[in-house]
Amino acid sequence: MAHSEKSRAKAEQAKGKIKETTGRAVGNEQMTVEGRAEKAKGDARQAKEKVKDVFKD
């Protein structure tokens, strides 16, 4: 299950980065903000998984 969550975090980070970059390229501030939020959500999920790994053993 942890591997699935880590993959999900990476996917969210990538999706957010793409959305943020696209928003900047086309001048769409709403899309840029949404991309940043998705990336932050992925970062938070990844941090949670790292903490779980530390306390796993």
Score class of each variant (00 low, 15 high):
residue 53 D to Y: 00
residue 32 T to R: 13
residue 29 E to Q: 13
residue 47 A to D: 02
residue 31 M to H: 14
residue 43 D to M: 07
residue 44 A to W: 04
residue 43 D to N: 15
residue 42 G to R: 00
residue 32 T to N: 08
residue 50 K to L: 03
residue 17 K to L: 13
residue 30 Q to Y: 11
residue 32 T to I: 10
residue 31 M to L: 10
residue 50 K to E: 06
residue 46 Q to S: 12
residue 31 M to R: 07
residue 42 G to I: 00
residue 30 Q to W: 14
residue 35 G to K: 04
residue 18 I to V: 12
residue 43 D to R: 05
residue 24 R to H: 15
residue 29 E to I: 11
residue 17 K to G: 04
residue 35 G to D: 05
residue 55 F to K: 05
residue 39 K to W: 10
residue 26 V to Y: 15
residue 51 V to H: 12
residue 18 I to D: 09
residue 51 V to T: 09
residue 49 E to D: 12
residue 52 K to G: 03
residue 21 T to Q: 14
residue 17 K to W: 04
residue 54 V to F: 06
residue 20 E to R: 10
residue 47 A to T: 02
residue 20 E to V: 03
residue 46 Q to F: 11
residue 50 K to G: 01
residue 55 F to P: 01
residue 43 D to Y: 02
residue 31 M to F: 08
residue 29 E to W: 15
residue 31 M to T: 10
residue 34 E to Y: 03
residue 22 T to Q: 14
residue 42 G to C: 00
residue 21 T to Y: 06
residue 47 A to I: 01
residue 16 G to M: 01
residue 48 K to N: 09
residue 44 A to T: 06
residue 21 T to N: 15
residue 41 K to A: 09
residue 22 T to M: 09
residue 33 V to W: 11
residue 38 E to Q: 05
residue 45 R to A: 12
residue 52 K to W: 06
residue 23 G to D: 00
residue 51 V to P: 04
residue 53 D to P: 00
residue 48 K to E: 12
residue 40 A to N: 08
residue 19 K to D: 08
residue 45 R to C: 12
residue 37 A to F: 04
residue 26 V to P: 07
residue 50 K to P: 00
residue 21 T to K: 15
residue 47 A to Y: 01
residue 43 D to V: 11
residue 40 A to F: 03
residue 26 V to Q: 10
residue 40 A to C: 05
residue 20 E to D: 10
residue 16 G to Q: 00
residue 32 T to Q: 10
residue 37 A to G: 04
residue 45 R to H: 08
residue 47 A to V: 02
residue 32 T to S: 15
residue 39 K to I: 04
residue 30 Q to E: 10
residue 41 K to G: 06
residue 29 E to P: 09
residue 43 D to S: 07
residue 45 R to M: 14
residue 30 Q to H: 15
residue 40 A to G: 14
residue 49 E to T: 05
residue 38 E to S: 09
residue 38 E to T: 02
residue 23 G to P: 01
residue 29 E to G: 13
residue 52 K to M: 08
residue 28 N to V: 06
residue 52 K to R: 15
residue 21 T to L: 11
residue 35 G to P: 06
residue 50 K to A: 03
residue 19 K to A: 11
residue 51 V to C: 06
residue 45 R to V: 13
residue 45 R to W: 08
residue 40 A to S: 08
residue 23 G to A: 02
residue 54 V to D: 05
residue 26 V to N: 15
residue 55 F to S: 05
residue 39 K to P: 05
residue 29 E to D: 14
residue 34 E to L: 07
residue 25 A to S: 10
residue 40 A to L: 13
residue 48 K to I: 06
residue 55 F to R: 04
residue 20 E to G: 08
residue 24 R to D: 13
residue 26 V to S: 13
residue 39 K to M: 15
residue 48 K to D: 06
residue 25 A to W: 09
residue 19 K to N: 11
residue 51 V to K: 13
residue 42 G to L: 00
residue 25 A to Q: 10
residue 45 R to E: 14
residue 40 A to H: 08
residue 17 K to T: 12
residue 52 K to I: 11
residue 44 A to K: 08
residue 20 E to Q: 07
residue 16 G to S: 00
residue 40 A to W: 02
residue 55 F to H: 10
residue 16 G to D: 00
residue 23 G to S: 03
residue 37 A to Q: 06
residue 44 A to P: 05
residue 49 E to V: 07
residue 41 K to M: 07
residue 23 G to E: 02
residue 27 G to A: 01
residue 44 A to D: 12
residue 21 T to C: 06
residue 52 K to L: 09
residue 39 K to E: 14
